[in-house]
Amino acid sequence: MRAVIADDTLITREGLAFLLADAGLDVVGAASDGAALLRLVAEYRPDVAIVDIRMPPTYRDEGIVAAREIRRDYPGTAVLILSQYLEPAYAMRMLTDYPERTGYLLKERVNELAVLTDALRRLSEGETVVDPTIVARLMHRPRPDGALDALTPRERDVLACVAEGLTNEGIGARLFISERTVESHVANVFDKLGLTASTHSHRRVLAALLYLRETRQ
């Protein structure tokens, strides 16, 4: 897997490059700002771009702006957005417009190599990955009645895991249920949320987005 990295801090870029190389990824370039990142993506067409949200010149949302351009112009390149702070609004902006091959993790997660490489693998396969801290925060917010009210408590637990990007096997291990039971719950969730099978959409991504939209209200 070919990767590029964008972060304004040299030590972060070098640290990420070391971790990814140790995991067997080919880091073909690193940038300190959004413009340089876009040049790297245009030149190398990597499988994944790892992008910090806040970069020069304003240190606000330059990473998000660059990530949106990448997903729009290079649909084969997945984007993993990193942030030092919990910023659900930024995650939702990106995931709503480009749900597939887009992920959002807190920077502290990249210290766990298995978590980072698993997220990159899922993104390259077309999944979405959302930091579990964001999911947990959203779960405990009050919200108005909505589509999720049709789900049982167990189905909501399963959907929360789907929103984190867990596989059926991972959900089973988290909730101490069999993979077959997970499959049944996921099918029920899709049915209750009206997510029919389609070659043009990924139901797990759509279910995760619906969950995140409703729980953040």
Rank of each mutant, 00 (worst) to 15 (best):
E100A: 12
E179V: 06
L193Q: 00
D8K: 15
I177D: 02
A66P: 10
R137L: 15
E214P: 05
Y90M: 14
T167V: 12
S124L: 00
A21K: 15
I50Q: 04
R54T: 03
S198H: 00
R45S: 12
E179D: 03
G146S: 09
A187T: 07
M92P: 05
R72M: 08
T77W: 13
A78M: 06
F190W: 12
L25W: 15
R101D: 09
L113Y: 01
L123C: 06
V4L: 10
V4R: 12
D7N: 09
A30E: 11
V48F: 03
T77G: 10
V79S: 12
Q217R: 12
N188T: 11
A31T: 09
L37V: 11
P46I: 08
H202D: 02
I70N: 11
L123H: 01
A42R: 09
L86K: 08
G24L: 13
I171N: 00
I11F: 14
T77Q: 13
L19V: 12
V110E: 04
R122I: 03
V158C: 13
I5A: 06
Y90S: 14
N188K: 13
G126Y: 02
D47P: 02
Y90I: 13
Q217W: 04
L120V: 11
L106Y: 11
A136Q: 11
E214D: 13
L38N: 13
A160I: 10
I70K: 05
L120E: 01
R154F: 10
A6I: 04
V27S: 07
A197V: 06
A147T: 09
R141E: 08
L212V: 08
G146C: 08
I11S: 14
P132R: 10
R72N: 10
G194T: 02
R174D: 10
T9F: 13
M55R: 08
I81H: 01
Y59F: 15
T181I: 00
A42Q: 13
L123K: 06
E125P: 00
T96N: 12
A89W: 02
A89I: 11
V28E: 08
L195A: 01
T215W: 00
C161Y: 07
A187H: 00
T12A: 15
G15W: 05
A67F: 05
F176M: 13
A150N: 02
V182A: 02
P46N: 04
R180K: 09
L40M: 08
L113A: 14
L105Y: 10
L209E: 06
S184R: 14
E155M: 07
H185Q: 06
